[in-house]
Design a protein around this nucleic acid. Structure first.
Lengths: 224, 224
DNA sequence: GATGCCGGATTGGTATACCGATGTGGTGGG
DNA sequence: CCCACCACATCGGTATACCAATCCGGCATC
């Protein structure tokens, strides 16, 4: 079990490295990329590159026009659709969570978000912050909701990356997450649903603002 | 544009062939499969096999335990979760559809389901029958809803395949689909939402019944 | 006879060679 | 000077060779 992931580590590592390169805008949105260029850049063969590209394609960080790949541009319309979709599934997810969650599961999430709140590294914080919603979805005991929530977080990942910097935003997020968790723990399904919707709206504003602020850093083809 | 998909055809073809082999129970649920065995069986190299397996993994028709692949067993719990998830997203999808759909789009879907009703080949019929819900989701103008609906249909694809045989079931499905489309066209959002829920419940019963009937054909490891 | 160990067969992961298609830049002709 | 055309570079798709890890079976030993 210890060495079991050794062969996966490299592939996971490549996926993470590629994803990080996209998130950090090292690979600029809208830019065409080729398997062979990435092969040289990341010093691995095309086979794992292809596999990673398929994942990123699924996650919406990479797009294909015809035969060639490109870094996905910021798509305001898509982000709107993602948030609209989130507003459909997440209230229902936390309603189910409020009914089904066990205290120890809630405690685990609570310690997780407190931990991530103490950690300062932006990378860790972002991953934790996104993880919260997925872990809440897991409380619903519905795997479809979990994967859908994963999809939602992944598709807004880059936009949120733009907006992680603000200390105030972090504190707000932590407070709202805690509030949601409290309501789930109290079994208040409707309250949790409302809190989630409010949180979603706040994040949406923050994200769209961040894209607007970053617009000049990104090329014309970087925002659609 | 005509020959543009020539190179894709083979890969798509492999994916379709593999999927068909799984759906038709030619590859039995729960059975372990290896890339090299498939390579010989389908007479293509491992590279496209790997790619197809990744797709099928995502669609839930193939699972991994550790390092090796296996045909996904029928997972009753998962099917329940899929239908529960569908009951969350599809009512909202048709509500949006009822508000946003253009008459020509509805007409296109209507002719499509009538066409598929006339076609007798089970393969074509199944694809059309599943396509209906995805195309309704497209009317919502929300790509997340579309992909989620695609996911839902794919994850129940094999189970529905088991239950496609009945002529009566086909007629019922066609009638319910027509009814849903009528309500969307009339702009009756709530009526369409109710009709979709009723249809989902009917399909769910049908599917679970089909699995129960097929239980003896599938091995012990074929149903979880 | 049971058990433990070792060796070969098989697995997935990776690297690489080859192919046909596509797009592009340079050159020659109008 | 402009346009058409051809050669070449490069792309993604495919096939295949190689590797390390793992699994299984048989043999030797207790």
């Amino acid at each position: 079990m210890i060495a079991e992931t050794a062969h996966q580590t490299e592939e996971r590592d490549l996926l993470s490295r590629l994803r990080f390169a996209i998130l950090s805008l090292d690979l600029v949105p809208g830019e065409a990329i080729s398997e062979r260029a990435l092969e040289q850049q990341f010093e691995v063969s095309r086979t794992p590159i292809r596999e990673a590209l398929l994942h990123l394609l699924r996650d919406g960080l990479v797009v294909r026009d015809g035969r060639s790949y490109a870094i996905a541009p910021f798509d305001i319309a898509e982000i709107d659709e993602v948030f609209a979709f989130r507003d459909i599934i997440e209230p229902e997810a936390v309603r189910l969570a409020a009914k089904l969650a066990r205290p120890d599961e809630i405690a685990a999430i609570r310690s997780s978000i407190n931990l991530s709140h103490d950690e300062f590294t932006p990378e860790r914080w972002l991953e934790m912050g996104l993880d919260f919603h997925v872990r809440c979805a897991q409380l619903s005991r519905n795997r479809c909701l979990v994967t859908a929530m994963q999809d939602v977080t992944l598709r807004t990942l880059r936009a949120r990356w733009l907006s992680f910097a603000s200390e105030e935003g972090r504190k707000t997020t932590h407070r709202e997450h805690t509030e949601i968790l409290d309501l789930i723990e109290a079994g208040d399904a409707e309250g949790a649903a409302r809190a989630v919707l409010a949180h979603s709206a706040a994040v949406r504003r923050e994200v769209l603002q961040a894209i607007e602020n970053a617009r000049r850093f990104i090329g014309r083809r970087g925002v659609v």
